[in-house]
Simulated assay, not measured.
Amino acid sequence: MMKAAVLVENNKIEIQDIDKPILKNKGDVLVRVAYTGICGSDYVRFFENQAKFYPIILTHEFSGIVEASNSANYRAGDKVAIIPLKPDFEDEQSKKGNYSLSENYGFIGSRENGGLQEYTVIPEENLVPIPENIDLRTAAFIEPLTVSLHGFKVAGLKDLMVKKAALIGMGSIGLLALQVLVSYGYDVTAFDISDDKLALSRQLGAKAIVNTRNKEELEAAYNQFDFVIETSGANQSYYIVNKLAAKKGNILYIGTPHKDLTIDFQTFELINRKELTARGSWMNYSAPWPGEEWTEAVELFQKEAIKINPLIAAEVSLETFPEIFADYREHKIDGKIFITVKGGN
């Protein structure tokens, strides 16, 4: 038996003793889950009836240690991070390397059980080997780091002429994206409604910060940025991206909105008037599977270019996660919720 935090119905979680999984198929690996983070996308699954089924074990950002293996590529004791997408590799989009655009994909922590359990069986193609000099706490941040790396790849960032970049939304994804851009050498201005998040952005390398509730500061920043990245998905962000962009600027949408948007025509037509280029980014994969984003994420952590501890707002064990569940629901925790499942180095 093992313990798991099970979402038994919307807004109701229980710590349960469930059967420990066993290996059955060739290539499968039994992973002892060490740490898992909660993604912003998990909120609607926990609290807004958007779980695919009940009961379900959520989270897709996690690391662990191989307990047993039916794979020639992994052996007991290996450190791993999890790749949550399970593409349909025969889908036409997958054959083009667009794995997250395939129709019938699976997803660990959403369409099947995820990281809030002590052990799980993962196919070998859904694992990333972790070098000895990266600890398992850090490895749990590889998946969210690849989100911005994929966006930058989609936008062709390294081929663009960028003098100044703007980041809108300094949550976990935004703060990770900021550190990547700083490591690339860009001049980055951070935008958010939270002074605390902006102060943290400054500590992590932002050259300037702007509270978007300050109208004068915000308007003074219009038309300045060659590259504008929206990471929050908050409705108010979509009203300012076109205004921040310089002429011939590029906009990257990483965040996903959860409410209807109504944009005035003057704001929308800035796409025409400034001849802007806008790109969307969905998930974090490219060919060859799972993509160079995952290799680069490991390299960035090896170079110690990315700090994770400043991003963690609440850290609990698997058993004590229910104690902060109400605060999580009421948005009283501003930052990453990080859970020790079995722990490890």
Rank of each mutant, 00 (worst) to 15 (best):
D334W: 09
N272I: 06
I308Q: 00
V8G: 04
S148G: 14
K259H: 08
P144H: 10
I13N: 00
D192R: 00
V210Y: 01
C39W: 03
E296H: 11
D226W: 03
T320I: 13
L204D: 09
L127G: 07
E14F: 04
E103W: 03
G249A: 06
I108A: 01
S69L: 01
N113I: 10
Y119A: 09
E9V: 07
A278G: 08
N309I: 06
T267I: 12
A220H: 13
D187S: 08
A287L: 02
V147S: 02
K336N: 04
K3D: 09
F338C: 11
A81C: 06
L30N: 12
Y74H: 05
I229N: 09
L244P: 01
D195C: 12
D135S: 14
I56V: 14
E275T: 11
D28S: 15
K153W: 08
V188I: 13
L116S: 06
K52S: 14
Q224C: 05
N345V: 12
L276R: 00
N113H: 13
V29S: 03
V31G: 01
K86H: 12
N126L: 09
A206D: 05
I251E: 00
E292C: 05
T138Q: 13
V66M: 02
Y119T: 09
T295G: 11
L136F: 08
G37Y: 09
A245I: 10
Y238T: 10
Y253D: 04
E299L: 11
A326K: 15
A68N: 13
N211T: 08
G115N: 11
F225E: 04
R45Y: 11
I168G: 02
F89Q: 10
N214R: 12
I122W: 00
P55S: 07
Q236Y: 11
E112T: 14
A287H: 11
H258I: 06
R279M: 07
D78E: 08
P87D: 05
